[in-house]
Amino acid sequence: MDQEQQLSEAFVALADSLVADYDVADLLRRLADHCVTLLDVAAAGLLLADQRGSLQVVAASSETSRLLELFQLQHDQGPCLDCYHTGTAVTVPDVDLAARRWPIFTAETRAAGYRSVHALPMRLRDEVIGTLNLFGTRPGRLDDADARIGQALADVATIAILQERAIRHQEMLAEQLQHALTSRVVIEQAKGVLAERGSLDMDQAFNRLRRHARNTNTRLTDLARGIVDGTVDSTAVLTSHRRRQPPPPSIRGSAR
């Protein structure tokens, strides 16, 4: 599939989800995955303002501790924090050149194998509610097309989190931001249960969780809550099999 086709399929899928009864944690994870597929980046994450003065990671393209740590670090320093405060995109084409500004963040980014970092604002009118954070393995800027697609994905994330079409006031914004943040904590707790029971790392645990949610057509957050509350048998989740890919539509092979 070329990029244009991937792009339209991604946005069609996202639009389909947004009109249905979707789970915010699952949708944000898919958005992070789309960033990696569509843009010239290796990893992506979404950070949300917790309204206490910090940014919290709510979704990432991979659940490896190393990547999550890079997002967590930006409580204190890094491009996301700057992006959040200024409301404008922050791009770091070569992280080595930012070593003096963000010494710890630079060192950890390098250690994780990344060279370039970009942070795009998630905006609601004049308010920034979070940031989309992208990491590349090679130095360089996002080209104009990628920057526009990245910003569009960040905008979809904003819409997904603010589930009401019109946030009429600050109170509703607060209610929905806190809801999204709690979803993420429930998922972390469920990952812990699965990791321990199945001797898995956190990335594998998340993948089992997501696979089972899809196989059983359950919302990711509901499944995670069920595992932590003990109403869902985690053995079933650990043994959930990967569904076979449906065969490609025959029309593709035979049409002339």
Binding site: D50, L68, E188, Q189, G192, E196
Partner: peptide, 19 residues
């Protein structure tokens, strides 16, 4: 704020069989 505290909570649940 750290993800580890919540992950560890889940792991301890499984280790001890507690809520």
């Amino acid at each position: 704020y750290r993800a580890e505290i919540h992950q560890a909570t889940g792991m301890v649940m499984a280790q001890l069989g507690v809520s």
